[in-house]
């Protein structure tokens, strides 16, 4: 027996576009995240203590920046996905 979804949301013509967009944005975020990890590893922590602005160092700015950047990308992703869903006659559009 195959397991169908709890709620049948019907066909979603925007699905392929959203998948491509999601993978693209995932790769962009991955690059920025890997940059954070490698900056710390390759400089053995020294680069992270560099003061960037207003007395804040790279560790704080990059760390909080990663959190803010995630939200920024998420909002762009949602905007583009919603626009595409409307263009393709609302398949998969939010019903609530």
């Amino acid at each position: 027996m195959l397991h169908g979804p709890a709620q049948d949301s019907g066909p979603d013509p925007a699905s392929a576009y959203k998948t491509r967009l999601g993978v693209g944005m995932f790769i962009v975020y991955c690059i920025v995240y890997v940059g954070f990890v490698l900056t710390n590893v390759l400089s053995e922590g020294r680069a992270m203590q560099t003061i960037v602005f207003s007395g804040l160092n790279l560790a704080v700015v990059y760390g909080i920046g990663l959190i803010v950047f995630a939200l920024f990308l998420a909002l762009i992703y949602n905007h583009l996905c919603t626009r595409k869903e409307r263009e393709t006659a609302g398949g998969g559009e939010a019903r609530s």
Partner: peptide, 18 residues
């Protein structure tokens, strides 16, 4: 109810958790 709602709820989660 829908995949679009799954997406939107994840964005609310990112904002709140972040």
């Amino acid at each position: 109810p829908s995949p679009a709602c799954a997406r939107k709820s994840t964005i609310v989660a990112i904002a709140a958790i972040g």
